[in-house]
């Protein structure tokens, strides 16, 4: 039928124990399983096996992003459609990635790898599936993230990837940033009813800008900032802020390998069909207000530095 969710990001890290400590004790994810090469994590309010994989590497950055489809036959259809579009496709057999079924890996025009798969093993919500206590336990260590919300990947020209994802994979474009010549600088895409599941921004092809963890309230984002500061996690120049784009409460910070993370709260709702609602358009002049609403400027390192 279609892609049903942005399921997980597989990041590369240079120090696995430090990454495990960061994503559990600071970010507040559950460690699901790990070995000496990889670790799998899930947030409290998700029932699938993982929302994050970190793999040991000699560099930081993104290995691939995982999206779940809601019909097994979608995998064949997606692979054929991607191949017809001239994109590299390979089968990922069962067992290559723990906690999920087989899938197809597609290399997007932006040189990012996107894995589509159907089955995820279930670990349930952190509070259980039967008469669960709501909210987050008082014994919980780390920030109160509920789910992996979205990721922003960087590339030299977002347009071909946007065209592919909207025309072939049924993503909708909710907001975009354009230069005076009308060229696309950044694009915010959704395959569900949230404001964005996947965004594309400027930078070298195949690089990773950030991934965002959702929270249930603005207050929990602020609490999250206190935890970051207590744990001496580097945050971006502007502590907590608001994005003009999407109108959400946000803070950026970095994992121990320099991969950018975000805590995020917002309730923006998208219609769920491409081209049904025209996208919001940000011009370059207003882009600083779009990126950092309060500060109305973008630090020079914000888009230059990606992993």
């Amino acid at each position: 039928m279609a892609i049903s969710r942005f399921s997980y990001a597989n990041l590369r890290v240079m120090d696995l124990p430090k990454a495990v400590k960061h994503y559990t004790e600071t970010v507040g994810l559950r460690l699901v399983e790990s070995d000496d090469q990889r670790a799998y994590f899930q947030a409290d309010e998700c029932q699938d096996h993982h929302c994050l994989i970190v793999s040991l590497s000699d560099r930081a950055g993104i290995d691939h992003v995982g999206f779940k489809v809601n019909d097994p036959s979608d995998l064949v259809e997606a692979a054929e459609a991607a191949a017809a579009h001239g994109l590299a496709v390979r089968d990922v057999p069962l067992g290559e990635i723990a906690g999920q079924g087989p899938g197809v890996m597609i290399t997007l025009p932006s040189e990012h790898n996107m894995l589509l798969f159907y089955h995820a093993d279930k670990i349930g919500y952190a509070g259980g599936m039967h008469n669960p206590t709501p909210g987050v336990s008082k014994n919980k260590i780390g920030a109160k993230v509920t789910h992996l919300d979205h990721t922003l990947l960087s590339c030299e020209n977002a347009q071909p990837t946007v065209d592919f994802l909207t025309k072939v994979f049924d993503f909708s474009l909710t907001e975009k940033v354009v230069d005076p010549g009308g060229n696309l600088i950044a694009a915010f895409l959704t395959c569900t009813n949230t404001m964005h599941d996947l965004a594309l921004g400027p930078g070298p092809n195949g690089t990773f800008h950030h991934m965002a963890f959702g929270m249930h309230s603005r207050g929990e984002v602020l609490e999250g900032v206190d935890i970051l500061k207590e744990d001496e996690v580097p945050t971006l120049e502007y502590g907590v802020s608001r994005h003009g784009i999407a109108g959400v409460t946000t803070i950026y910070f970095h994992d121990p390998s320099g991969n950018r993370n975000e805590f995020y709260n917002g309730a923006y709702q998208a219609a769920g069909k491409p081209d049904l609602v025209p996208p919001i358009v940000w011009d370059v002049e207003n882009f600083p207000r779009g990126a950092f609403y309060y500060e109305n400027q973008i630090p020079e390192t914000f888009f230059d530095e990606v992993t």
Binding site: S4, K68, H130, N131, P132, S217
Partner: peptide, 25 residues
């Protein structure tokens, strides 16, 4: 505000409440 995080997938599992836990629910 808030709300259960769920996806439109045949394998998604519902949370189950017993009537005896109605006030908690």
């Amino acid at each position: 505000c808030g709300g259960r995080n769920i996806d439109a997938h045949p394998e998604s599992e519902p949370v189950i409440w017993d009537e005896s836990e109605l006030s908690k629910a």
